[in-house]
Amino acid sequence: MTHADPFAIRELLGPDAAPGRRALTGEHGVVLPPFTDHHVHLHLIDEHGLAPHGIASAVDLGGDPVELARRPREGFPRLSYAGAFLTAPGGYPVGRPWAPAAIAREVTDAQTAPGVPGGAGTWVDEQAGCGASVIKVALNAAAGPVLDHEALAAIVSCAHERGLPVVAHVEGDGMLRLALDTGVDALAHTPFTQRVGLRLMARAAASQAWISTLDIHGSDPEAAANAVANLAAFREAGGRILYGTDLGNGDRPAGVQVGELAALVRAGLGGPEVIAALADPWPGADPAHGVATFVPGEAPAALEDVPAWLGGATVVPEEEVVRDEH
């Protein structure tokens, strides 16, 4: 395959891929839609490395809502965020060394009315008022107390009334079922503590998006195997897969993560599916405006070479790329 073969490039990478060049430098490569990392923690990373290394947009899934609200709206990465984790009293991530107090809110009352101290509605209102695009809840039964059905259902109801989806950190026995029973819209991680049964998998694929985060399990082979198997089954069931890395968890440079992409391929995703997971604008409806992803050099000939090749991606202004459609 060469950079001048648009048909082969589209077959490998999907309909939005095109050979092209950078107008200013003349460098040839492949033009793709802007990429999003759907799970990062900005307070733990150097975000300035994201755009130069292929990430146009990021979704912060656990940070100080006040600080996030104060961020400039222009520039890259374009940011969506959840604000603080909503969790049970004493629940994850309260007390974790990486989690300052400002990034968690303990739900002590299932009331949906505004202004109730510790209320579900109060904390959802706070995140929404700070500009959140999604509400994050912690359901980590492996690390302490979790929200009960009533409190979680109240959070989901309040979020949906405000047009906001709910994403959950699900870990431990019964947590996926609890998330499904209360209408949680997305999972912050592919389930990794156990294999998901067929009935739950079918329910999840019909109603949820899953953020991949497969590559965070490098030191736990069982969790890694569970996550890849679960995502493969979720894909087979027709589920919506979002590329996400939990960047800030571990020592990794900002940008496209080759290990995460390789894990997606191991889970059975083809090239177009990998690009779709990267380019999905969730939790919004529209991708980052005015930019494209550019990968220099010839596109690879085989799927197994796509992850390493995408590691060379960068974000460029849309007007700087010239697509070769012939």
Rank of each mutant, 00 (worst) to 15 (best):
P6Y: 06
F7Q: 15
L13I: 10
D16T: 07
P19M: 10
G20S: 06
R21L: 14
T25W: 03
D37L: 12
D37A: 09
H38Y: 06
L42P: 05
L42N: 02
E47S: 10
H48M: 10
L50A: 06
P52W: 13
S57K: 06
G63A: 14
D64W: 11
R70M: 14
R78Y: 09
G83R: 02
G83Q: 00
G90M: 02
G91N: 11
A102Y: 04
A104K: 02
R105S: 11
D109I: 09
P117Q: 08
G118E: 07
G121T: 07
W123I: 08
A128I: 12
G129T: 10
G131L: 14
A132F: 01
V134F: 04
V137N: 06
A142T: 15
A142Q: 14
A142L: 15
L152C: 08
I155A: 04
S157D: 09
H160F: 11
G163N: 04
V167L: 11
V170H: 00
G172S: 06
G174K: 01
L176H: 14
A188H: 01
P191A: 10
F192K: 01
R199D: 14
L200Q: 15
L200P: 06
M201Y: 12
M201D: 03
A206P: 05
S212T: 03
T213A: 00
H217V: 09
G218P: 02
G218K: 06
P221Q: 04
P221V: 11
A227Q: 04
A227W: 13
V228K: 12
A233Y: 05
A233T: 15
F234V: 05
F234R: 01
F234Y: 11
E236M: 13
T245L: 00
G248F: 05
A254N: 05
G255T: 10
V258L: 01
V258I: 15
L261T: 06
G270W: 13
P272T: 09
A277Y: 07
L278F: 01
D280F: 04
D280Q: 01
A288F: 06
V291D: 00
A301T: 15
V306I: 05
G312M: 05
E319R: 15
